[in-house]
Simulated assay, not measured.
Amino acid sequence: MRKPGSENRLKRFGALGALLLLTGVAVAGPTGLLAWSENAAALEVRESEIAKLTAKRDALRNRVMLLDPEAADPDLASELVRDQLGVMREDEVVITLED
């Protein structure tokens, strides 16, 4: 036979255990308070990568527009032909610019 208050005590310990478990997950879980700063730092890194890739995409888009077969930029076309074929005149000087 059980004591009259033991059933209530068991329910209270169960509720307390569940509350402590939920608190632990809220603090130390994968989306908890401790992971928040890590996620914020990762977000900043990703945003800077996106900015770099966006700039690179825009530069490539501009280069593609300059190579339009209907109205190709003569300077760019000449540069590409000389680069791909390795053709230079004797009196030319090549200056390369680092990106």
Rank of each mutant, 00 (worst) to 15 (best):
S48F: 06
L67C: 11
E49I: 13
P74N: 09
A26I: 07
V25W: 11
P30R: 14
I50Q: 12
R61Y: 03
D83S: 15
L34Q: 05
L53Y: 11
S48M: 04
S37M: 00
V93R: 13
L66F: 12
I95V: 10
L66Y: 11
G24R: 04
L22K: 01
P30N: 14
L20H: 10
T23S: 13
G29L: 04
R89M: 12
L21Q: 00
W36C: 00
A28E: 14
M88D: 01
S37L: 02
E92H: 04
N8Y: 09
L85E: 06
A77W: 05
R63I: 05
A41V: 12
V87A: 06
L21K: 00
D99L: 10
E70W: 05
L10T: 07
E47V: 02
I95T: 05
G5H: 13
G5W: 08
A18Q: 09
Q84M: 11
M88H: 05
R63W: 03
A71G: 06
A15H: 06
V87N: 01
D68I: 12
L60E: 01
G24L: 13
N39S: 07
V25D: 09
T96I: 02
A71R: 15
E44Y: 06
T96E: 08
A40G: 01
L80S: 07
G86H: 02
A42F: 04
M88R: 14
P4F: 11
P69S: 06
L34K: 01
A55E: 10
A26G: 09
E79S: 15
K52Y: 06
S48Y: 06
D73G: 05
A51V: 07
L60P: 01
A26E: 09
L60R: 02
L67Q: 10
G32N: 05
V64W: 06
M65F: 00
L67W: 03
S6D: 12
K3G: 09
A51D: 13
A77H: 07
A40S: 07
L22G: 01
A26Y: 11
P4M: 08
N39A: 06
D75R: 15
L16T: 02
L85T: 14
D91P: 01
V81E: 15
A77F: 11
R2T: 07
T23F: 08
S37E: 02
P30A: 13
R63E: 07
K3R: 09
A28S: 14
A72N: 05
D75C: 05
E90N: 03
A51W: 04
A15N: 11
A28W: 13
M88S: 04
M1W: 09
T31I: 03
